[in-house]
């Protein structure tokens, strides 16, 4: 850690990024009210919303121009993720986008057909969280709607494809989780080998952490907004509960955490786009901090709506259940902390 490095600390979004944020904010507000989120349960997938999202160019924007995409960076994808999370939209945005990008990075002709299907949204792809061991199954995020899953087996990066996605396993976050038995997958394509395989897989995980971090920021902000409004109308003993410091101060902590988590996620995205080797620990930092922010934020947002916040009927429950239901898909924060710690130790040598 060189604390005295002369780097810019400019967090202001470029005009084009600002436009992405506004466009997707509008899109999800119009197309994904909480009624759509509720109607998608328990699968957590809405085909109509997915089709509209594809029409918006979401599945191609992050692909390189050589693969028919728009060459957008992680930063633009992270801004979309923020709005996606704000709506807790029932679509496999993060899994599909980072896996498509990994497939495009591998640039194997054998993948052309899958990539074309991924680009037009008809063939959903996902990422295995852990290295694949023979004879063992894995819970795969978006695995119940994905036709292909990218995973690391030994030193090979392999794309496993099935005719029919495996069945949903119901889960706390109402996401399309499914057990994948890779041994019985119909088709397997070796996408990359050796160091290249590890590099592509790691990059995809880093991108997933940054996009998830951004999504959790948006999600927490939605929960906070509901609770802020609630506390401005709810009275106790003749005063609005929002005037009580015991209520107001914890809410300010949520807002404070959100503000920082958003900036860390965006900064991590910037480094992935511009200087990926400089701050390799930032994606994990973004992930851990957003997971903490979301857990703490949605827990308290539900709590400050009292008993009402504990009911399924209250929309704040949507965010509370997904804060863990989504963040847990990107790995145990403690494991990430150990990795971050290793980075600190290595740079202090």
């Amino acid at each position: 850690m060189d604390l005295h490095e002369l780097r810019r600390q400019d967090y202001t979004l470029e005009e084009i990024s600002q436009e992405v944020l506004v466009a997707f904010g509008d899109f999800f507000r119009d197309q994904c009210p909480t009624s759509v989120v509720r109607a998608s349960e328990p699968l957590g997938f809405d085909q109509n919303l997915w089709d509209r999202l594809v029409e918006m160019g979401t599945t191609t924007m992050g692909l390189p121009e050589s693969a028919g995409g728009d060459g957008a960076g992680v930063i633009e994808l992270a801004l979309v993720a923020e709005e996606f999370g704000r709506a807790v939209a029932p679509v496999p945005y993060i899994e599909h986008v980072v896996t498509s990008r990994a497939l495009a990075a591998a640039a194997t002709p054998a993948l052309d057909q899958v990539l074309a299907g991924a680009a037009d949204g008809s063939h959903i792809v996902a990422l295995a969280s852990y290295p694949i061991q023979p004879g063992s199954k894995q819970l795969v995020p978006a695995g119940a709607v994905a036709k292909s899953v990218l995973g690391l087996a030994g030193d090979d990066l392999i794309l496993y494809t099935v005719e029919q996605s495996p069945a949903l396993v119901r889960n706390q976050g109402h996401t399309p989780l499914a057990w994948w038995d890779f041994d019985s997958a119909g088709s397997r394509i070796v996408v990359a080998t050796g160091a290249n395989a590890h590099a592509i897989f790691k990059r995809a995980h880093d991108e997933r952490m940054v996009l998830m971090a951004s999504a959790l920021v948006g999600m927490t902000e939605s929960a906070l907004a509901l609770t802020v409004e609630f506390t401005k109308t709810r009275e106790t003993m003749g005063v609005l509960i929002s005037t009580l410091q015991g209520v107001a101060f914890p809410l300010t902590d949520i807002a404070t955490n959100i503000a920082g988590a958003r900036n860390i996620a965006r900064k991590a995205a910037w480094f992935l786009d511009n200087e990926p080797d400089q701050r390799p620990e930032l994606p994990a930092i973004a992930m851990v901090y957003s997971a903490q922010t979301a857990t703490h934020g949605t827990t308290n947002a539900a709590h400050f709506q009292g008993g009402l916040g504990f009911t399924l009927e209250a929309d704040v429950s949507l965010y509370f259940l997904r804060s863990k239901g989504w963040s847990a898909l990107a790995g145990d924060p403690s494991a990430h902390l150990v990795d971050i710690g290793d980075h600190v130790l290595a740079s202090a040598k």
Partner: peptide, 8 residues
């Protein structure tokens, strides 16, 4: 883990 947490 604690150094990681401190950097976060």
């Amino acid at each position: 883990e604690r150094l990681g947490a401190a950097l976060v």
